[in-house]
């Protein structure tokens, strides 16, 4: 197999090169290559350059198949910040890289599970738009969950 190189372009117009046989782990790219050879640059309008760098790092991994599961887990564990993981999950969803997407979503779910509401808001920089009374009403309504 010839080592052809593809170029991916992030939201902020940065270019990344990657060998085609590695890039086609992404189903989206595989379909593009199948359709038109994808000789030109592939634009990824929803992915910023930092996230794309991560995705490229993931696609470039050299892992035996049996260790792959552990590798993906470790890969997302090392990036334990919720906003980063969300960006990563979004990119993996767009590019259709199933393992990476599953692992990233799973990690966020795991983190959220152990967070208090305040910690969730802080991690995502979300403002609490409810008064304490409104919040108490919700807690009372869903007593079984708190």
């Amino acid at each position: 197999m010839s080592k052809k190189t593809l170029t991916l372009m992030s939201k902020d117009k940065q270019l990344f090169n990657i060998e085609e046989h590695l890039a086609v782990q992404s189903v989206t790219i595989r379909n593009m290559v199948k359709e038109d050879g994808a000789s030109s640059v592939i634009p990824l309008p929803r992915v910023d350059s930092e996230t794309l760098a991560l995705v490229i790092e993931y696609l470039n991994r050299q892992q035996a198949p049996e260790e792959d599961e552990d590798y993906v887990k470790k890969f997302v564990d090392e990036r334990g910040e919720i906003p980063t993981l969300l960006e990563l999950a979004q990119a993996a969803l767009d590019l259709d890289i199933k393992k990476l997407m599953d692992a990233a979503c799973m990690k966020v779910a795991d983190l959220i599970k152990d967070f208090t509401l305040e910690e969730v808001r802080e991690a995502l920089r979300i403002e609490n738009d409810r008064t304490p009374e409104e919040e108490k009403a919700i807690r009372d309504e869903f007593q079984w969950a708190f």
Binding site: A89, C105, A109, I112, K113, V120, I138, F142
Partner: peptide, 24 residues
């Protein structure tokens, strides 16, 4: 991103999903 958020909600336990409904 909504699609990612929905995926994550599906991975949560129902109890945790009900809890985070109070975030905002």
């Amino acid at each position: 991103p909504l699609d990612v958020f929905m995926l994550i909600l599906h991975l949560l336990q129902p109890k945790d999903a009900a809890r985070v409904s109070a975030v905002c």
